[in-house]
């Protein structure tokens, strides 16, 4: 069974059509959740609106559970699922730079596309900034390469790293997420957002 395209169950040509369809679903949900508003997105960092946290972690745990159950019933082969490789330092430093970009710019790339689609000019500027950032990276690639390639751990999963089963890890993450949602709900009550 799945994944369908890497196993050539459906033809490669469908790939882009599926990409487009998946993108529509992705964009629609992001916009519906309110990710097209930078003030809603930034809200999570000040406690007045935890929508990012809720959507992001609900999405992540749903994805985890979905994949594990599909694998359990033999509907998907987890060996053929792309696991992004871990290069520790570039992931940390890159994440720090992205975090700074998040709080300064108020978007991340996916949400900026979605916000630009409904006419947010700040999102379009943010999106333009991404081009410049990537160009800068391309131009400084040789210089940053040692950091980019450092501490390669392979395509490793967290469950392998700490030596527990994927299901058990997912269970712990679900509990952590539920606790986090509870804290977020409390925070939203504590720091009510002013109407604007």
């Amino acid at each position: 069974m799945g994944p369908l395209i890497p196993q050539e169950i459906i033809a490669e040509g469908w790939n882009f059509l599926i990409a487009f369809g998946v993108g529509i679903g992705f964009g629609f949900i992001l916009e519906q959740a309110g990710f097209s508003s930078s003030r809603k997105l930034a809200g999570v960092f000040y406690g007045y609106d935890a929508v990012v946290l809720k959507v992001f972690f609900t999405g992540a745990i749903t994805g985890m559970i979905g994949l594990l159950y599909l694998s359990l019933f033999d509907w998907i082969d987890l060996n053929l699922i792309w696991v992004n490789p871990t290069y520790l330092w570039s992931a940390i430093i890159g994440g720090i730079i992205m975090g700074a970009g998040f709080i300064v710019g108020g978007f991340c790339p996916g949400t900026s596309v979605c916000a630009a689609a409904i006419g947010k000019i700040d999102a379009m500027v943010f999106f333009g900034g991404i081009f410049i950032g990537i160009l800068l990276f391309g131009e400084t690639f040789e210089w940053i390469k040692p950091l980019y390639m450092a501490e390669y751990w392979g395509q490793i999963k967290l469950s392998e790293l700490i030596g527990i089963s994927q299901g058990l890890l997912t269970f712990f993450i679900i509990i952590a997420a539920l606790l986090m949602f509870w804290v977020a709900e409390m925070a939203e009550k504590k720091f009510p957002q002013k109407e604007y």
């Binding site: 992001f56 985890m64 994949l67 696991v83 970009g101 991340c108 943010f126 990537i134 160009l135």
Partner: peptide, 28 residues
Amino acid sequence: GGVLFGYGSQLGRGCTSGSALTGMAVLS
């Protein structure tokens, strides 16, 4: 913010959706 995110996403091999969300779903 866009410039920072653009640079960081290349260094970190993916942005919030590509690396963090997708990566977490596969427990990477």
